[in-house]
């Protein structure tokens, strides 16, 4: 886009994406979805890198596997699990919503406005409750079998 010289583009950017103003429920889910997606992608790269260490011989492999049993890595693994659960279940909502389901039909704009946000909100809440339960269950399992 063209930009005249006497203006200044100063309000666009990653900061505004992350921190821009107060958001609604779906706004926060949007931010979390991007963050969890990026985290999963990084994990995938790391995972491929770690498993490839098998090529360096059995000893290296075993040392690496022992290292993954450290509490810090187990906790990081739990975070990956949380990101996965959230991303998957929120993704179900996004697939439905982005295919035009659950957003309702065009309505007469009469005040107070109640639009697509209200229509898909129950779906968002149900999926986030399930997400919370699965994350809690995962944490419980992790505490029960700390070296599983």
């Amino acid at each position: 886009m063209t930009q005249p010289e006497n203006t200044q583009r100063r309000t666009v950017g990653i900061y505004r994406w992350l921190a821009g103003g107060r958001r609604g429920f779906e706004g926060y889910l949007y931010v979390l979805h991007r963050i969890s997606g990026t985290a999963l992608l990084l994990f995938l790269a790391m995972h491929v890198f770690f498993t490839a260490a098998r090529l360096l011989g059995q000893e290296t492999w075993e040392r690496l596997m022992a290292a993954t049993q450290s509490p810090v890595l187990i906790f990081l693994e739990y975070l990956v699990y949380c990101a996965f659960v959230f991303h998957a279940l929120n993704g179900v909502r996004l697939i439905l919503v982005e295919l035009g389901f659950a957003v309702g039909k065009p309505d007469h704009p009469a005040y107070p406005y109640r639009g697509s946000i209200h229509r898909q909100r129950p779906l968002a809440i149900v999926l986030m409750v399930i997400t919370g339960l699965l994350i809690a269950l995962g944490g419980f399992e992790l505490l029960r079998f700390p070296h599983g």
């Binding site: 609604g24 779906e26 706004g27 889910l29 982005e98 639009g115 697509s116 946000i117 898909q120």
Partner: peptide, 10 residues
């Protein structure tokens, strides 16, 4: 590129 943050509608 829209992933329904729905901030516009809000």
């Amino acid at each position: 590129h829209c992933h329904y943050a729905a901030e516009c509608s809000r």
